[in-house]
Design a protein around this nucleic acid. Structure first.
Lengths: 351, 351
DNA sequence: CTTTCTTGTGAAATCGTTTTCTCAAAGTTC
DNA sequence: GAACTTTGAGAAAACGATTTCACAAGAAAG
């Protein structure tokens, strides 16, 4: 006697009581092949048979085994995403949008975090391929060449976000980090600032942080300021780092009159430091953030910052992915617009 | 000629260039059965053979096809999570911890968002079951009875988070929302506040919000205050809602001298309103938040709030899930401790 | 009335693993 | 040294779907 039990109508059931296609076919009085065809919308099935199968399936509450389906048809409707962390609103928002759209399009999302480590990203990519994802959403353009090659070889479509540079990938949705940096440079120069500093994110393995910094420095150079004189501190996106970096900057002489932060998180820390040390914003120093998170409006003074459409970016990435299935267009770049949000933390350079 | 290409060493590769177990076995000079045994830690394999397989696997960068593995072994190592939204740090942090641990334990996570809608949660649950998840992480104890039953019938283990009440589920990891509410009630009463109000989250379909409110009101009653006199406003967790709710409260007479907010988000809005309308905190009104998000420290004055170990909760949920596989303990509750973080937004009641 | 397409159907191969059988070789025990 | 364990390894059978192939039966064309 096997572990299966044979019921009176002759159908066999697995111990867990899970309904298989065989059971549906048995009840509908046809072969599994026919049942499969009906359930997959293949129209080469007679009307009567089709209806019997459909009825049997609903009556039994049949749910296809997606492992089996994926194994045979080599098509999971599965998407992977590797992001640095979910503990940062800018990525969480993107994933939120991505998930929402994918769900609406009948796809599912497996997420993995890399903690800003490209080596770890490589490992996660392998896992996701093993899971059978058909596409993978990554952050930024810079990745381990192994990762890029591996994914290409595995036939997995790569979509980069927060960037407009496709490079080794298949598509990109994001914005021009460099242009955003230049925009801030121009904005601060228009306010007559001359002693300018930056608190950037860690640029190693992070092209977004690097491009923002480089664009910013380029913009300053273009306006006649030597980039040599611009003090740049790199720090991970944490409030404490913003505090400490601002402390360092405020101890330099001459003090900068404007500080551009690579993220609102760093900017919030910078503001906190100034507030607790009697440094007036923007009277003594102007501070600019990046991302336009909720905190930008909550800190006092509220932050001038660059708005990044994070959720839209995720939504658009999802739409790009669904397109893949039908029209596999080539290198596909979608640029979203960032915009400067001027609030209270910036003002003209002190006299 | 098939679609496979045969390379010089005799191994066959699928068109996509994915390495299969067969390739590993071929390179190691053994059968697939043996290779499988080695890779699955079955110790009945000779030392020399074992090492050759391991070497071959790493050299080829072998990643098992999890569909096939799942199909045969009847175990996808797949976990689902349905959370209200990722656009709220408290959930994003939990998922961050969950994902990190699951990944370390060799499991993958599919996430879905419900937008605080139990109907939508039901739909998502069905999708996840179809995907073959073995467990599902949900937020709170309150769910559509259909969802609970469906998941139980499908043999999917249900883990509730942010709560200690298991009810229809299999396990819970979280904290006592009601006790946290009482704690705040006592704290405010100890500061001699008598006119107290609350800005709660939406309680429909949200037992956490409801329990916090009820615990708070109970605590006030216990200290001799009539819950009738406590004005409670419900609002979704958005900053603007905090602003508007605070506006309403400040227009009542007599004004409350202390306001408990169901979330730091609402509290941040409340603070913002006061700051822009010359209402002193805590001189005129004390404000208490909930969650201890980054913003609690960033707003001015910084928020007195209840610390919630969100990331730990996710990590613990992951560990509970992995336990299932081996020791399937029954109803399993793990209570984490919340604690009151006193900052600048609270003080004694004005005279 | 044959021949040639359609059309609908079922049998069987397949996807890449894990796991059960089977069996040979090498130890053990008397 | 014969009879029994143990041990290690391969061949082959699952797992549950999809999809190819083969083939009837009926329709259309000659």
């Amino acid at each position: 006697m096997s572990s299966e039990e044979t019921s009176s109508d002759g159908s066999t059931r697995s111990p867990a009581g899970v309904v298989r296609l065989r059971d549906v076919a048995l009840r509908a009085g046809c072969s599994v092949a026919t049942a499969s065809r009906v359930l997959n919308g293949n129209n080469k099935v007679g009307k009567a048979e089709r209806e019997r199968v459909l009825a049997a399936a609903t009556q039994l509450g049949y749910v296809p085994n997606s492992s089996a389906r994926a194994l045979r048809s080599q098509s999971t409707r599965l998407v992977g995403a590797i992001i640095p962390t979910l503990d940062h609103a800018i990525y969480a928002k993107m994933v939120d949008g991505l998930q929402e759209q994918l769900s609406a399009l009948g796809m599912s999302l497996i997420i993995n975090t890399s903690e800003y480590d490209l080596e770890r990203e490589k490992t996660q990519a392998r896992i996701l391929v093993g899971r059978g994802v058909e596409s993978i959403v990554l952050v930024g353009t810079e990745h381990d060449p192994d990762t890029t090659r591996y994914l290409r070889d595995a036939g997995v479509r790569q979509i980069y976000t927060y960037t407009c540079v496709v490079d080794g990938g298949d598509a990109a949705v994001g914005f021009d980090n460099s242009a955003a940096g230049r925009m801030i440079a121009n904005y601060l120069r228009d306010l007559n600032h001359e002693r300018i500093a930056m608190i950037a994110g860690v640029t190693k393995g992070n092209d977004r942080a690097r491009l923002r910094r480089d664009g910013f420095l380029e913009g300053l150079e273009a306006s006649g300021l030597s980039a040599q004189d611009v003090f740049v501190i790199e720090a991970p996106y944490k409030i404490e780092n913003g505090i400490h970096a601002m402390q360092s900057l405020m101890q330099t002489y001459p003090r900068p009159t404007a500080v551009f932060c690579g993220s609102d998180i760093l900017a919030a820390g910078a503001v906190k430091y100034c507030n607790s040390h009697g440094i007036r914003i923007p009277g003594d120093v102007s501070i600019v953030g990046f991302d336009d998170l909720e905190i930008a409006e909550l800190v006092d003074p509220s932050l001038t910052t660059v708005h990044v459409p994070a959720k839209q970016m995720g939504e658009h990435a999802a739409r790009m992915l669904s397109k893949t299935l039908s029209e596999k267009s080539g290198h596909d770049v979608h640029e979203l617009q960032t915009r400067l949000i001027v609030r209270e933390s910036t003002g003209p350079a002190p006299a």
